[in-house]
Amino acid sequence: MPRQRSRAAVTLPKGVHRVVSRGREYFYFQPGRGTDHAGERIPLPNDPHAPEFWNAIRQAQGMMGAVPVDTIGAVLDGYLEFIKSSGQITAGTIDQYQRSLKLARTAWGNLPAKGLRPVHVQAVMDGLAATPGKANNFLSAMRALSTWARVRDHIDHSLTEGVKPYGKESGHKPWTPEQIEAALQHLTGMIRRGVILYMYTGMRGSDAVRLGWTDVDDGGFALTTLKRKRDVWCPIVPELAAEMASWEKRPGPFLYQQGGRADGHRFTRKMFSTHFAEARDKVPALKGVTLHGLRCTAVIRLRRAGLSTGQIGDIVGMSLPMIERYCRFADRKTSGQAALLTLRRTSEEQNCKTPQNSKT
């Protein structure tokens, strides 16, 4: 039986009670419990670490509308409930923010919200120096939290002003032709199909796993991106069309699980990434490659085909600065190769000017 992880103790507000019955934990709100003036017993969600738990308490207390938020924990509860109900943030981003903001809850949960300063955020960043990716995710979540809390007067100033993210030594690298060839030869089934979709569409994983036959429109894929809510039309290039010719025409997305109890069920982005990583690790030639690297590969391919950054953005749903970032190495390499051809041609022309040719 797997061992359950212990969770940090939570200080319950007045009127909230915890009951353990038959090995299960229950919470309810009842002011004046055990007195002649006991109020109504109102059940609460069973996870005191969840934002819904604290919102249920506020509702039970009759504090609807403007709710006083004075601690870091209360601000976090309000923000997480906001992003979950807004419908503007993807589930993957919400999950990332929740994991990152646990650090804030652990460090300052019961402290006054208006006492938090950028110096405190910087202290956490310094403590995460050994894991810069985790530190940068924490900073991104704190920036979003700060923006939301500032305009609602939960805090007096920015919580992240002057706090800088750690520099990235290298981002996701595009795949080499050798790595692409190895993937097409050694990967099979839905993993190979997914690599092909990523490579020839350049879409984010959250969009690639949603693609299906119903998205085909006049020789391309027409859809609204999940993250940016941007309408894109991605042409189906001949290489991808040749692969799709052998795919079964069935309802749902192109990528689905095969075998086992989940047979036929759709992949989530995270699940497909996990399955891909397991298959990748069995192919030595694919060591270190990432699915997001195929997004870089697709952008570079479109750039080398002569498309502008604006055209590429319309196809893959990517911002222009990000396209330019992905293409920076390819553009430099192409420019360098063109310069090399010019130098060789100049050198050959100079070598042709022999004394005999000069007299002629």
Rank of each mutant, 00 (worst) to 15 (best):
Asp95Thr: 14
Val124Glu: 13
Ile315Trp: 01
Leu111Met: 13
Ala262Leu: 14
Phe276Asn: 01
Asp231Tyr: 07
Cys296Tyr: 06
Gly259Thr: 07
Val299Leu: 00
Phe254Met: 07
Val163Glu: 08
Val75His: 00
Ala330Leu: 04
Ser335Pro: 01
Met203Lys: 05
Asp153Phe: 10
Gln257Gly: 06
Ala330Val: 14
Gly293Asn: 03
His17Val: 06
Lys14Val: 12
Ala339His: 08
Asp77His: 07
Tyr97Pro: 00
Ala262Gly: 02
Tyr198Pro: 00
Met1Leu: 11
Glu248Gln: 15
Leu307Lys: 11
Met125Thr: 02
Leu255Thr: 01
Thr297Cys: 07
Met142Phe: 04
Pro13Cys: 09
Thr334Arg: 07
Pro355Trp: 07
Gly34Ala: 15
Val19Phe: 04
Asp231Pro: 07
Thr360Asp: 09
Thr225Cys: 11
Lys333Gly: 02
Lys282Val: 05
Asn55Gly: 04
Leu12Val: 05
Ala277Gly: 06
Asp217Asn: 12
His154Lys: 09
Arg7Trp: 06
Lys134Pro: 00
Asn46Ser: 15
Val119Ala: 14
Ile89Leu: 15
Met271Cys: 10
His17Phe: 15
Thr342Asn: 12
Pro48Arg: 05
His186Cys: 11
Pro31Trp: 03
Ala91Gly: 05
Leu184Asn: 09
Gly310Lys: 10
His275Arg: 12
Tyr200Val: 08
Gly109Met: 10
Thr360Phe: 05
Arg295Lys: 12
